[in-house]
Amino acid sequence: MTIPEPEKSLEEQNRIIQEAGQILSGFSRKRESLIPILQQVQSRLGYLPREAMTTIAEYLKVPAIDVYGVVTFYNQFRLNPPGRHSIRVCLGTACHMKGGYITLDAWKRRLKINPRETTPDREFDLDTVACVGCCTMAPVTVVDNKPEAQVEPTKVDGILLAFGHPVDTKDKEKSESR
């Protein structure tokens, strides 16, 4: 398993290294600077691309795997660029009881990505949350910061259609009938 990260041009890679370098210059080369650095780099770039992680590791003189270990440990850090639309599937207790996992599966199937990943066209990113505090609406999916109520798999298709995103099964049927 490797980081499911979209391909980047050399220009983009250099830009990432340059921007990370700018942030790094404000920090001392101490291990304890790692998390504040990661937070600032992420708020600048939206995520933590591998070039940024290796640049940070070099600066702090820690193994790159240690930076990766911290990034994968904390939920606040993301390895993928944020999509245009964010999909947050609630898996809190109430949503769990109401089949939040089924909803999550529907999103995974439709978007063809796993939680904490972004679609290759950078339209959607998928993640889970523990509770968004509106349990009467369970199962909840927060779409672009707006909680959607009773999100069953059919509603997943509805939300995607509203975004003009063609629903996959129909595509498949079309291609099969051709």
Partner: peptide, 15 residues
Amino acid sequence: GFAHRGFERRITTFG
């Protein structure tokens, strides 16, 4: 090194 969390925790390499 170590990466990921909880039950997913494993010995792995960068990326």
